[in-house]
């Protein structure tokens, strides 16, 4: 029996306003521990919105997100921040590194914010992470001294800092060249193979093809689920 790391139950996210808008419209999804899930879909279909909900960055209008079996809809804003700090790692299209800090300091940021490790232990882990992503010699450089691909890898190292159960990435290769894209792909694949759960939004069919499962979203709903290896599995979506 595989363990479920992340589960969405009838997830709905609505924007209330002069014109109400439903970004995510009733999504049910269970992601196993160590699974690599790719979310695809046309632009504006609600992929990012779904990812923010799954990573507890945003709160659903209806439904529930369960992280390692724990429901999260009743949590306060600061409790959700705590869960993000230790259980979710974020990677965005833009790296969002702090410009005044070195790569290492950027990677140390979540560990320092959590404050559970000794400084020496944190540095050791930070350097190991950067090393494993091929950034050993860039540890003391600031973001503006790095290439786009290097910055994105630093951002991935930062997402991994607190050993989160779940990594959510929103078009992490959207702004990268082909070589860097390939590098980032294999890093994410490795992460999943080592047992962490990865949910990545991508436009890139090549990346989607390397996922364990591909979930296609249209208009905030799951339109299609494709399992790797096992042919096409078309999901009937109630409309």
């Amino acid at each position: 029996m595989t363990e479920i790391a992340l589960q969405a139950v009838e997830l709905v996210r609505r924007i209330e306003g002069a014109v109400s808008h439903t970004l995510v419209n009733g999504i049910d999804l269970a992601v196993n521990k160590g699974e690599f899930v790719a979310i695809t879909g046309p632009s504006g279909s609600g992929k990012s919105s779904l990812l923010y909900l799954l990573g507890l960055l945003d709160a659903p209008s209806e439904g529930e997100v369960m992280i390692c079996g724990q429901p999260t809809s009743k949590l306060s804003e600061s409790d959700r921040a705590d869960v993000r700090l230790t259980k979710c790692g974020f990677v965005f299209q833009f790296h969002f590194l702090l410009p005044e800090f070195t790569s290492l300091d950027n990677v140390l940021l979540p560990m320092r914010a959590a404050g559970t490790m000794a400084e020496s232990e944190m540095r050791e882990r930070g350097l190991a992470l950067l090393g494993s992503l091929g950034l050993a010699e860039h540890a003391n450089k600031r973001p503006n001294a790095l290439s786009g691909g290097q910055r994105q890898r630093v951002a991935i190292a930062r997402a991994l800092a607190n050993r989160p159960e779940i990594i959510v990435a929103d078009e992490p290769t959207g702004a990268l060249d082909t070589a860097s894209t390939e590098q980032v792909f294999s890093i994410l694949r490795d992460i999943a193979d080592q047992g962490q759960t990865v949910v990545v939004v991508t436009h890139d069919p090549a990346l989607a093809a390397r996922a364990d499962r591909r979930i296609h979203i249209v208009d905030g709903k799951i339109a299609e689920i494709t399992e790797r290896g096992g042919g096409e599995l078309v999901c009937e979506v109630a409309s």
């Binding site: 960055l57 921040a81 993000r84 700090l85 974020f90 969002f96 410009p99 930062r158």
Partner: peptide
């Protein structure tokens, strides 16, 4: 603004 957003999204509390 961006630094603030990323620090919050990483899980730093607002008051911090």
């Amino acid at each position: 603004r961006q630094d603030i957003a990323i620090m919050k999204s990483l899980g730093m509390r607002e008051y911090a």
